[in-house]
Design a protein around this nucleic acid. Structure first.
Lengths: 230, 230
DNA sequence: ACCCATTTCATACATACGTTTGAATTTATA
DNA sequence: TATAAATTCAAACGTATGTATGAAATGGGT
């Protein structure tokens, strides 16, 4: 029977919910289907029955979040540009805050889970995730990049390319290790920090980095490097 | 027989040389001992004979570079501070350039290999690498962090903590994907960029990001009210 | 030439993985 | 209730992995 409001089998949701937690915690490669099905309390074969393969399960885990976040990014960028046609870098990157925090409505702690998944995906899937996002959300991303360019009109396109990938790196890596960082911060500085706190601290860093003036000249090696192997 | 200059068996070096390439390319978890021994043209059992286990092999691969790089970092930081007791952020991060490029003398393309290993290690070893480096090179790192603090005296320690981890993230992630980024850059912008080029582009970004003014909203949220008046 | 420690080698072991299978069970519809 | 589709389940399959073993080979020291 097909429900009018098809919420899918509970099994399928249980698998997704268990999988995303384990994926975020241990990465895709180091999370076995057996660990997932055990945590979800479903049969091992259910994954291949409902998703076909582990690879497709990973895709659907990420898709659940991207489908919510990316349209919101588009909306926020448009709204920001309507209000301020010549935005500063913090305004541009600030458009990401709402979409990211919106993910907490997809699942409890959804923002934290998604950004960690993103970090894992970028470093583990050897470019597959990058291509997937580019293919499905390339238009949205292009409009975002255009906004970045608007905030740094003097930056050559090739330099902007590198800056944006630096920004992605900062964001993705920080988020991938966000759990550990929050624990260290809480222990060493006695100040609990949540994902929203990290995002708010990231914006100034990324904004300043991306908008930094281009280095006047290539740094040269001043002292002669020495290598003495006993 | 023990050589006066013990260069170890050729087998051991062959394994290290093959392993670091495969580790950098596919990561630690996705590189099998069989792939390594095949590439090195040695017997499978040689890894466990010479290194004990895969984990120890990974450690020795990284150690070979850390043992060269970290003392040079110490030297460069000291030299920089001697020349300029109140350094700017680019000067501080600039001290990393020489140590990084020095790794090209350890092995051909050593810099590129090491930074990719570092990226892999940070995201795959669930904090083990971080702890290893902290344990063995904590003193050197502390002196470097002190220099960063010198370049941003107004930054609260807790904020500096986050900024530095952002910087690590920028660096490590960029380097982990440096191969792909170089290929994209060469294809889209017709300008070949090598690892030294990336490092030189990273310095301004990381410097500006780390030294960025603290966001107003963050300050109000996280600053602890105190009765002390300094 | 002999010896002994070091190193190599083929092979086996135990385990873990993603996936498949076919029967049992549940569920929806007629 | 009868029937057919959808789902669950235990079990197995084939493959790959890291590691262990014990015999063969190597090579310098006496």
């Amino acid at each position: 029977m097909k429900w009018v409001f098809d919420m899918g089998s509970s099994t399928k949701q249980d698998i997704l919910n268990a999988a995303e937690l384990l994926f975020a915690e241990h990465g895709f490669g180091d999370t076995s289907l057996r660990a997932i099905t055990t945590k979800a309390e479903v049969n091992l074969a259910a994954v291949n029955y409902h998703f076909g393969s582990k690879k497709q399960l990973i895709q659907e885990v990420l898709k659940r979040y991207l489908d919510v976040m990316m349209p919101e990014v588009d909306k926020q960028v448009a709204a920001m540009l309507a209000k301020n046609p010549q935005p500063g870098m913090p305004q541009v990157f600030g458009t990401l805050i709402t979409p990211l925090l919106l993910l907490n409505k997809v699942r409890p702690a959804g923002t934290s889970i998604f950004v960690r998944l993103l970090g894992r995906g970028y470093s583990e899937t050897q470019g597959h995730l990058r291509k997937y996002i580019m293919f499905h959300w390339g238009e949205v991303l292009k409009r975002f990049v255009d906004a970045v360019h608007l905030a740094a009109p003097d930056l050559p396109p090739s330099e902007l390319f590198w800056r944006l990938h630096f920004a992605i790196g900062t964001f993705v890596f920080t988020m991938a290790s966000s759990k550990a960082l929050c624990e260290i911060s809480a222990a060493d500085y006695d100040q609990p920090v949540d994902v929203a706190g990290i995002i708010n601290r990231l914006i100034p860093y990324i904004s300043a980095g991306t908008a930094a003036p281009v280095a006047a000249s290539v740094t040269t090696i001043t002292s002669t490097p020495t290598l003495d192997i006993a």
